[in-house]
């Protein structure tokens, strides 16, 4: 059992937790993720390790469907049934001078450890952060500690530009050049960002979040096609250079269980409320 030692509500959809998991914490590197099971019947939920110290790790999760809502019912002092990790390959930190981070929604969480690592190595870091509303812009204070400029985009215009992160990026590319962009967010956002960046010749890394079960390369559920080759996101990624990723295929794969997910969410959480 793994104790939740601290919990914060970041906005109506997103929460933060610190979990005591020494073996996950000890070997964790930027880009690694973990898998949580809330209770003994729970689904295995993959979540990025946002920060870690000697004993514990922090996660940021969006209450999306059944399992993340179940997780959100847990409070500080409660225990999680399973936490395993660190999983995946650490982010490949490239030898560059300027980086643009592009975060969509809860993508700000997985982007954080990578971007911070670049900044720690003296790289100039700019960030575009997007969300539904002002309240949905995550980790802004934390990012402010090491980003040169932060630009905002919200769906409703409550902060920064009204619209998508890609629109902000396109404007930036008129004035700035970046050696690398790292885009993390919903698949459709990453896809469009990569298309845009191609136009402006900006190299892009992304972090993929396909459906996973074991997270150890055993099941093949997480596979993605990259340049015609199959990769397992849990062991070969989750970070990849964006070049050649078949995002359309991945989006269909990610939606395979939509019907079941909606069903269980209505059925179980609906009934309990």
């Amino acid at each position: 059992m793994y104790e939740i030692t601290e919990k914060k509500i970041l906005n109506q959809d997103v929460e933060w937790m610190r979990i005591k998991a020494p073996f996950v914490a000890k070997n964790a590197k930027p880009g690694n993720f973990l898998i949580v099971r809330v209770d003994e019947f729970g689904e295995r939920i993959p979540l990025t390790i946002v920060t870690h110290d000697e004993m514990s790790v922090t996660i940021i999760y969006q209450k999306l469907g059944y399992s993340t809502q179940l997780l959100s019912e847990k409070q500080a002092g409660d225990f999680l049934f399973d936490v395993v990790g660190p999983l995946g390959l650490p982010s490949h930190i490239r030898d560059v001078k300027t980086v643009l981070g592009i975060a969509g929604g809860v993508g700000a969480a997985p982007l954080f450890p990578q971007l911070k690592e670049y900044a720690r190595r003296g790289v100039i870091v700019d960030l575009i952060i997007g969300g539904r509303t002002k309240d949905h812009l995550l980790l802004v204070d934390e990012y402010q500690e090491f980003c040169r400029n932060i630009y905002f985009a919200t769906d409703d215009g409550s902060c920064g530009q009204k619209g998508f992160v890609t629109q902000v990026a396109e404007q930036l590319y008129q004035e700035h050049t970046y050696d690398l962009a790292i885009a993390i967010g919903p698949l459709i956002m990453m896809k469009n960002t990569v298309l845009l960046n191609k136009k402006y010749n900006v190299l892009t890394d992304v972090s993929l979040n396909p459906i996973m079960i074991d997270g150890t390369g055993m099941c093949g559920n997480c596979r993605v096609t990259i340049n015609g080759k199959t990769k397992f996101a849990c062991v070969d990624g989750p970070d990849f250079p964006a070049e050649g990723i078949d995002f359309d295929e991945l989006m269909v794969r990610q939606n395979y269980y939509k019907e079941e997910e909606n069903h269980i969410c209505r059925l179980k959480l609906g009934a309990r409320k």
Binding site: L70, M218, T225, D246, V252, K268
Partner: peptide, 30 residues
Amino acid sequence: ENMTGIYFANEFLTRVNLMKANRFPAAPTP
């Protein structure tokens, strides 16, 4: 091979045996 609807046996069997997908929605993995 990476279209949806195509499973490796490991995924399919793990969903059912380890995650008890045959009992969905009583077990949450479909």
